[in-house]
């Protein structure tokens, strides 16, 4: 039977999934999935530093820390790749392993007595625990703390995607053309990266670093296989991630499994089936 905590958990998961699947579309199109992966690892030092400056309850520190390190990640990658001429895959790999290592060192150096920081938690997260932070005002339940952060973020992402649809569209498909049209590709690039960092860091405690990447890449990649149209891709990505969350959540509940990994596993099955059908049957190359 569905109880209140389930509803809170599902809402949290959906908020993360929707933000990620919208942003992920642009990562997939720009062939920047691994930059997203890198960011999800390398916001760690930002989070740790924010912990040290303030407490977790003052979430603004965390957000700023995450945004700074997220953008810093892309800047370092660009610097290694463009200025120092290191090949791109190595630039990405080097940057995120280094920043992640920095984060782990910071944790071990400063974590004494700070029970909030735990590398297991950072990496795996636990969706089933988010409902613990309920916000109750005037005797009525308004949601959980993480929802209060994730909801505005989703709104920002949605507004951004709608307002910037044209900019994102041109930027995603033809960065050079966008430049000739006077659209600032740098702006859209860093805007996208900042949003990815924020989503990652807000999802940390719920789903963990690596699974954020799952939400960022799997539903958008599935949608990319099924459609050629950006608008459809965004919508399809939302639909698929919703399906993944619902099926994954109840499967996990039924078999008593870890929730967020199960959701990603379900999304993995969805794209697996899509790929198998497409490879074996060319009629289904593009559906919408």
């Amino acid at each position: 039977m569905l109880n209140l905590n389930d509803i809170l958990n599902i809402s949290t998961a959906l908020l993360i999934a929707w933000s990620c699947s919208l942003l992920g579309v642009f990562l997939v199109l720009r062939k920047m999935v691994m930059v997203g992966d890198a960011i999800s690892h390398s916001v760690l030092p930002g989070v740790v530093m924010a912990f040290l400056v303030g407490s977790y309850s003052s979430s603004s520190f965390i957000l700023i820390g995450a945004a700074v390190f997220g953008v810093l990640t892309t800047i370092i990658i660009d610097f290694l790749y463009r200025k120092l001429k290191l090949q791109e895959d190595a630039s990405i790999g080097l940057t995120f392993t280094w920043l992640f290592a920095l984060g782990v060192i910071l944790i071990t150096v400063f974590a004494d007595g700070n029970s909030h920081i735990d590398k297991d938690c950072v990496l795996f997260g636990e969706l089933g625990l988010t409902f613990l932070d309920k916000i109750i005002i005037g005797g009525r339940l308004w949601g959980t703390k993480s929802m209060m952060l994730l909801l505005p973020l989703l709104l920002i992402v949605v507004v951004f995607v709608f307002k910037g649809f044209k900019g994102f569209q041109i930027h995603a498909f033809q960065a050079e053309y966008a430049q000739t049209k006077g659209i600032s590709t740098g702006f859209w690039h860093y805007a996208l990266m900042t949003l990815v960092s924020l989503v990652t860091v807000l999802s940390f405690e719920s789903v963990g670093a690596i699974l954020v990447v799952g939400f960022l890449v799997v539903p958008p990649a599935t949608a990319y296989l099924l459609t050629k149209n950006l608008r459809n891709m965004l919508l399809l990505s939302l639909v698929i991630s919703t399906f993944d969350v619902l099926v994954g959540y109840f499967t996990a509940l039924h078999f008593d499994l870890a929730i967020s990994p199960t959701i990603i596993t379900v999304s993995g099955l969805v794209i697996f089936l899509t790929i198998v059908v497409q490879i074996t049957n060319s009629r289904f190359k593009t559906v919408v």
């Binding site: 997939v28 062939k31 920047m32 999935v33 691994m34 997203g36 992966d37 795996f124 690596i210 699974l211 990447v213 799952g214 960022l216 890449v217 799997v218 990649a221 990319y224 499994l257 870890a258 967020s260 990994p261 199960t262 959701i263 990603i264 596993t265 999304s267 993995g268 794209i271």
Partner: peptide
């Protein structure tokens, strides 16, 4: 890069399950 991202995260999730 999408392929690498997909495999990394799905296998890892599978392992966590």
């Amino acid at each position: 890069d999408s392929a690498i991202g997909l495999v990394t995260t799905i296998y890892f999730a599978f392992g966590s399950v």
